[in-house]
Simulated scan of single mutants.
Amino acid sequence: MSASFASALGAARDAAAGQHYPQGTLYVVATPIGNTADITLRALHVLQLADTLACEDTRHTHGLLRVYGIDKSSAQLLALHQHNEAQASQTVIALLQQGQRVAYVSDAGTPGVSDPGARLAAAVRAAGLRVVPLPGASSVTAALSVAGAVASGSADGGFVFAGFLPVKNAERASAVQRLATEPRCVVLLEAPHRIHELAAALAVLGERPVTLAREITKQFEDITTQPAQALTAWLDGAPQRARGEFVVLLHPVAVPEDDSASLRVLQLLLPELPLKTAVRLAADITGAPRNALYETALALRKSAESGDKYE
């Protein structure tokens, strides 16, 4: 055990031991996404208390427990990952029905978001058993908290979590085109060996701001906001920029609320002209930013296709 966590275990017992932790319950436990200090006192207590730990990777979890000074035998660790989640969920249900406390952890962050755990939680709840969340580290919320990309107090506030886009080029390009019409912030995830392909696909969004957050909470954490069309050049600027897991945020882009004139011009032109022509003319007539008008035009076109009017 790292000596720095010896006092944390004592603090975990002091802070959390007096709370109620029923048997026959699945505890979904968030673990650090890089910095081992990002563990909650409640998580440390439940990891000690659990009869069985279901893990995305038992070797990874065993090493993490060792850092914290938590001793679990190999028999207490159960592998539960994307390839065996359905089958292993039934094993977890059987253990819960025997009255065990079972904690589930993925390799990093909050389970069930982009990691395994969603099918497990659904199966346990369907069996009439209790699932308790232990919140903590999340790369998604960590990136959102510093990017300034989530609008509040408007109809287009909030964000959309899209996760990993398709691997194949054509499918990825289609997904980007669909997301281009989403007025809210869009959250994507990407692996280092595919980040260049994603950057190339996002280039069609032009000047739309995109935040790349990599190695979040780690020593070489790097968070930058660039125009979508400049992402490839930024990645090529230094070899280390393409290393590590990425959270990618597509910032919302909209015509300013007080620019009603440009919006009205765009609404009049769209039914009569091709989209790009309507955007170019609206920008020339009103002086509004062409990229902002383009995003608005995509949203208006999508709304019209669903049966709504340009109003």
Rank of each mutant, 00 (worst) to 15 (best):
229 Q>G: 03
66 R>T: 15
216 I>N: 05
284 D>G: 04
21 Y>I: 03
206 G>T: 03
227 P>G: 08
226 Q>E: 12
286 T>R: 01
263 L>V: 11
40 T>E: 07
22 P>V: 02
294 Y>E: 03
98 Q>P: 08
28 V>D: 09
254 A>W: 00
1 M>A: 06
170 A>Y: 08
63 G>Y: 08
41 L>T: 11
98 Q>G: 07
149 A>S: 15
61 T>D: 08
242 A>G: 13
144 L>Y: 10
276 K>M: 13
130 R>Y: 00
259 D>G: 07
247 V>F: 10
186 V>A: 00
150 V>Y: 02
125 R>S: 12
83 H>S: 09
114 S>V: 06
175 A>L: 00
302 K>H: 13
1 M>N: 10
88 A>T: 04
259 D>K: 04
296 T>S: 07
239 P>R: 13
158 G>W: 06
284 D>P: 10
260 S>K: 09
221 E>G: 14
119 R>N: 04
34 G>M: 05
16 A>I: 05
231 L>Q: 01
95 L>S: 14
273 L>T: 09
44 L>E: 14
166 P>W: 05
119 R>F: 11
76 Q>M: 13
290 R>Y: 00
303 S>T: 06
87 Q>D: 10
40 T>D: 05
233 A>G: 07
13 R>M: 08
13 R>N: 09
213 A>W: 11
209 P>H: 11
20 H>I: 10
53 L>F: 08
154 S>H: 05
159 F>A: 05
184 R>K: 14
3 A>D: 04
129 L>Q: 10
293 L>F: 00
114 S>F: 12
162 A>L: 01
186 V>R: 10
184 R>Y: 01
179 L>M: 02
298 L>F: 02
3 A>I: 09
62 H>N: 06
57 D>E: 13
175 A>Q: 06
294 Y>C: 08
187 V>G: 08
85 E>K: 12
72 K>N: 00
163 G>P: 03
160 V>L: 14
68 Y>V: 10
57 D>M: 06
292 A>T: 04
278 A>C: 09
2 S>K: 13
79 A>N: 12
185 C>A: 11
16 A>D: 01
41 L>F: 13
291 N>K: 07
172 R>F: 03
192 P>R: 07
28 V>P: 04
301 R>Y: 05
68 Y>P: 07
268 L>I: 03
74 S>A: 15
15 A>E: 14
215 E>A: 14
254 A>C: 10
264 R>P: 04
84 N>V: 14
87 Q>W: 05
124 V>F: 04
136 G>E: 06
296 T>E: 15
73 S>F: 08
133 P>V: 10
33 I>G: 03
166 P>T: 02
231 L>G: 09
163 G>N: 09
244 G>D: 08
217 T>P: 13
227 P>C: 05
143 A>D: 00
7 S>T: 08
8 A>F: 15
288 A>C: 13
110 T>M: 15
84 N>W: 09
5 F>Y: 14
14 D>N: 11
159 F>P: 01
62 H>S: 14
123 A>Y: 03
191 A>W: 01
154 S>T: 15
154 S>E: 12
236 D>K: 12
170 A>I: 11
244 G>M: 01
164 F>A: 03
118 A>Y: 12
9 L>W: 06
88 A>R: 11
